[in-house]
Design a protein around this nucleic acid. Sequence first.
DNA 1: GTGAAGGGCCAC
DNA 2: AAACGTGGCCCTTCAC
Length: 591
Amino acid sequence: MEIYFQLITDAQTLQKACDQLKTEDFLGFDTETTALDPYEGEIRLIQLSTGRETQVIDLKPFAERESLRTSLELAPLRELLSAPKPIKIAHNAKFDAKWILHHLDVEIGGVFDTLLASQLIAAGDQDRRHSLAEVTSYFLSTELDKSEQVSDWSASELSQSLIEYAARDAATMVPLREKIIEKLKADGLIQVAKLEFDCIVPIAAMELNGFYLDEARWREQLERVKISQSKVALELQQMLSAGVAQASLFGMTEINLDSQTQVTDALKNLGVPVPETTRGWQLQPLALEYPVVAKLLEYRGVAKSLSSFGENILEFIQSKTGRIHSDFRQIGAPTGRFSCSKPNIQQIPHEENYRRCFRAGDGKKLIIADYSQVELRILAEFSNDQNFINAFLSGEDFHTTAAAQVFNVKPEDVTPDQRSFAKRLNFGVVYGIGSQRFAMMTGLKQTDAEDIMRRYFATYRGLDAWLRDAARKVVTDRTARTASGRMMRFRYDEDDRKAISLAQRNGKNMPIQGTSADILKRALHLLHREMNGTSARLVNIVHDEVILEADASEAESTADKLEKAMCAAGEEYISKVPVKVDVKIADEWAK
DNA sequence: GTGAAGGGCCAC
DNA sequence: AAACGTGGCCCTTCAC
């Protein structure tokens, strides 16, 4: 492919180019940076392509004249990038959005992301990859050479071939979008694509903001856990080596407590009937009879705390900001949920000693909001089950109300056991629980578990019907969808019984879990607009929870905005039951 | 040494 | 096959 490009290094040429570019409907958009972390490098190039020709803007000469964030010379570019039109087409736009926001102080407007679109079209197919090279090859059947990707973009003079490489990536985006949008339309994914694209800037801003982690507090907590770890490790070591008396005579029985095989062997020597796996749920029943098993479980707990939530997380504190800037994958799961890594701050233990380390900066407050039982409300909406809906409309404790309905007693006569059964079932039906698992988790006999589940589904006939239909539909359609139209595709052999039952559970769960993700994403978009011009910043999201940080003086008004945005987003998808959001203002994540 | 796989456990 | 879904991270084990 012949590439027509122009390298721009001065204000006059830039102004002229921007005047032309702004008349386009779509522009391929890409940046080249000297690092992966916007706090650690500079933007070297910005490429904008009509598909026919590509403008490559070298920011280095501009940066040498004045700060990019305030540069008057860049005003036309800033205007072009922030405008909703032309639509900027980028691959993994979050990356470019972060750099533009941090270095140019520009919030990108009007984005089409070929990475997110490709993920939506793949509909959960784990075999598909979504690098620009793969996506280009899949949709355009042309090969893209990415060998220059790791080039040195800080050199004072960039070679012609390097500039051409930069131009080519941006030029690819226009035809790529044309192919992708056809497929999005054909698959009914336009609405969900917009939902995703609207979410890019809020997430980019969140990653730049980061979450403040109090290092001193974290280290204090670490010390406490370390002390109990060494104590528990010693005790477990002694209890385990009691079974190998002759070995301990030689004083060489160091059992690796983290080794599955060594611990299993030691337990066997002690006469413990070890199950096939030594996972907590299998070991739990044995813990009462065998103190060594209880000790092992205790050890596992502290070991996990120390390894996953130990010193390592402190290495993620960005030296320039003093904060944690995790990486959020917008379509982290096929259901549409986010995933989070480096570090994963969606899995910080709920224990107060850990959560309280994540706190507001000086003079700031955290505003913490979460959806109350959003997945069950979605299930009520989907199933249209009048009893289930009534349980929410009553406004009383949902699980108690459900127990009263299922066991046909007055709410005030519901026993703790009955409430617990109802709660576990309410929770479990979302995942497609079976009676075997229900019996296991409640300690009920199989027949008693079946009896309670029958009562449950007899009470909620509409819910039962919806779940059965979801399981039936996924087998015939081989797809499931959320309220926004997000799709998950299932591929399995006709006679693979295990795969079928898994797909059936997925068919029930995906629309619910995925609609919850839809709602959160919609809320982030609505919220972002409301926070404009305020001190409020997004710092973390955990599936149904949103955490903001704002000046203490703006905490109340921010809390109000947050609750309104989350409710409004929920109400776009849920109308038959109320959407409830719990909001609190706190100094720490814990409180 | 490095990397994948398996087991285990944290979150929602 | 925990017949309850989605992730990420840590450790050991094992192959290269």
